[in-house]
Design a protein around this nucleic acid. Sequence first.
RNA 1: GCCCGCCUGGCGGAACGGUAGACGCAGCGGACUUAAAAUCCGCAGCCUUGUAGGCGUGGGGGUUCGAGUCCCCCGGCGGGCACCA
Length: 889
Amino acid sequence: MISEPAAPSLPVATAPSVAGAERPRYDFRAAEPRWQRAWDERGCFRVEDVPGGDKPKYYVLEMFPYPSGKIHMGHVRNYTLGDVVARYKRARGFSVLHPMGWDAFGLPAENAARERGVHPATWTWDNIANMRGELQRMGLSLDWRREFATCDPAYYGHQQKLFLDFLRAGLVERRESWVNWDPVDGTVLANEQVIDGRGWRSGALVEKRKLSQWFLKITDYAPELLAALDGLDRWPERVRVMQAKWIGRSEGARLRFELAAPEAGTDEVEVYTTRPDTLFGMSFLAVAPEHPLAAAAAARDPAAAAFVAECRRMGTSEAAIETAEKRGYDTGLRVRHPFDSGRTFPVWIANFVLMEYGTGAIFGCPAHDQRDFDFARKYGLAVVPVVLPPGEDAASYAIGDRAHDGPGRLINSGFLDGLEPDAAKSAAIAELARRGVGEGVVNWRLRDWGVSRQRYWGCPIPVIHCEACGVQPVPAEQLPVRLPEDVTFDRPGNPLDHHPTWKHVACPSCGAPARRETDTFDTFVDSSWYFARFCSPGAAMPVVREAADHWLPVDQYIGGIEHAILHLLYSRFFTRAMRATGHLAVEEPFAGLFTQGMVTHESYKGADGRWLYPDEIERLGDGSARHRETGEAVLVGRVEAMSKSKRNTVDPGAIIARLGADTARWFILSDNPPERDMEWTESAVMGAYRFTQRAFRLVEAFAGGVAWDTVPATFGVPARSLRRATHRTIAAVTEALEGFAFNVAVARLYEFASAILEAEKAEGAAGETAGLAWARLEALRTLALLMAPMMPHLAEEIFARLFPASGQLVAELPWPEADPALTAAESVTIAVQVMGKLRGTVEMPPDSAEADVLAAAEAEPNVVRALDGKHVVKRVYVANRIVNFVVAG
RNA sequence: GCCCGCCUGGCGGAACGGUAGACGCAGCGGACUUAAAAUCCGCAGCCUUGUAGGCGUGGGGGUUCGAGUCCCCCGGCGGGCACCA
């Protein structure tokens, strides 16, 4: 799920020593494994499938990783964010489900098999073992007992069961659709394997080919998936907008154009349009290259056939189709205008008409649609304006170089003249209906979900094809349908197809020899229900209702914005399908969603044009860079997403070994807001490392000698000041964590550490030791608790130093509460503006009377000068914040 | 091409419509040290000679007593586009 850069990264060079020659005071190398063991032994992060007790539940989930081999910084960011939430919620008294697993099917394993001869299963399980260790060294508060991998029959067998339930419920269909076909490799290509219209391996021109495939009927849920978006109030607005546009509800008309002469046994073409109001501006009709009419034209016209064949070499992705030059072929056929059968228009085959959308045919109105306009200009078709923009004159108005899709009034349109577009749409639809040639319809952009993949490393689709009985579901007692292990990748195509025996089975219905389905599921299917499986990962059925009913929906889901549409929409659909088949009660899988930004880094290029890893170069004082070993000058390139092809990656495993998990976590949280792209920089990481040492020194400098249970009766000025900082920090960090402003939480803790240091000095200088010492203990204890979600190991270490005999773990302690009596300010600074410009400030007691504040403001010397000779016409006063004098003259 | 975002000092960023630049990084000065590292203290948006003033949140316009924040237009950068995950 979490996407992968595309080539293996080099092992990191020698780890430079940290902190000079002196051994660091806080030894994370010893401390981190120690605390990880402590948490594990105490089972701090375990929860039951169906817990007892009265704690409220909280399910936090990060998108599970694809086991590519090593974790990357995107993982570190994702899982750190989730862990902060999990640990924070646990401290707030929730029973937290926080699981981890592996999105383990997919193309890279097959690529590794073909390129390096390693079996996909071996490759995948080895990667999982390695990455599990890396994640464990991050100190994540996961319930590892719940771990599973989607490539395990213990998981995908249940997925097959779900599919068969969906099939019975009528949520599955088999129909034909187009795929990218590599004619040289003889294999189906993923869109990413098509580069400039050619197969990535063979270089052959890709063709579209039609295959019989399985579809999940997500379109049945289109209205519900759209309407329910409104209820997802803890999702980012932009994700909801993107999904709404993707589902793409539109209102328009379906209408039938009569062919002037019948063709291939039909005498009409059906068209969907959202602009029936512009029918009088029509100048052509266009069908998709896959449209039956195009096929009919191709059958009798070699030139048409050549054009259609060329369109097939365009790839199936929408981006490829939309960015291609608009081209067409005039079939010579003509259609009659629905409102004026005397007028006829040419029928074109056009490469920008999508067979999947609407009816695969459009009518072209160049004046009011930009694509139609571009097409008309290219082929010399008429451009007749029928919507006159406001302020234009009907006699002189002409379309320039842009189509007009804005408001106006209808012209050149017979009975529609004078209407505005909305009214004209209704009138046109009514007229179409009256004539019996069309009707108003609601159309959806969303298409059914094709789940068949012609690949080995995926979940087998559990059906059997029988000559006599047709498609038969695999009987439940034969599940799981396991992938055969003895496969080879020495030739192109799907190894399941080539396997000598696997696909030959008896028909479950008649017993005759039959053929197993050799397609496997799209890996998006695997990730569309894993969140439900985590509630009862060992169950003998897909989900245990009691467990799922308890834990779902996921309270906080965290992952990359790149999944804003497909994965999230498929999961929303799956949840509904599982509800329809009795597996779940909830309607929505993810109550809260957070989308994180990418991790970026500078890129470096050597003199020979090769990309260099950050470890291979060193920066010089003047901002330039050179190669660590050869000394050659290195070009510092753009900061961009870490990718293996640009080699601008930093290996988290090496960072954690060198500086510790807490440093990595702290830095990744501190750099910037988590929804934005962050830049990984060596020096800023070192800043984070220094803070771990500084925080530890604060504790070392504390002499102790005060009892936590004995609160002093009185506090002197420095103690009160420190306690105010402590309780304000509690309030500020709590607010920041609640709002996912982790970088602000970090900043507040930096400030807090400075305040503690200041108090340390005050104690050295002044007396009143008892009160201040206790306030310092309170501050240090609070520091440990507040940092714990972000730097859990250091927090434990600090706490253990403060309370060596307590036997408590921070991981089990409640979150601190800010005492409002201690956070109140003793004075406020009020800004004084004259005409909106700052002219001074005044210090006032909080909530002073307005008259007092205005008097003080007007007395401020600089304000006096600014007001000199002016007449104050208005005094704006915002309590405790600002005064603004509006003046005249 | 279509859909959706983002843009604030040298850098990452902070800022209920109310003192723009908190905090961190890099930098500069100082203390400590034989020296360095580490640590601690201080300075720091830009311009003008300032404890005063002007300019300043990608560019242009607007709303408001007051705009980084709200609205419109433009520019740049990024994500998604259905078989990458």
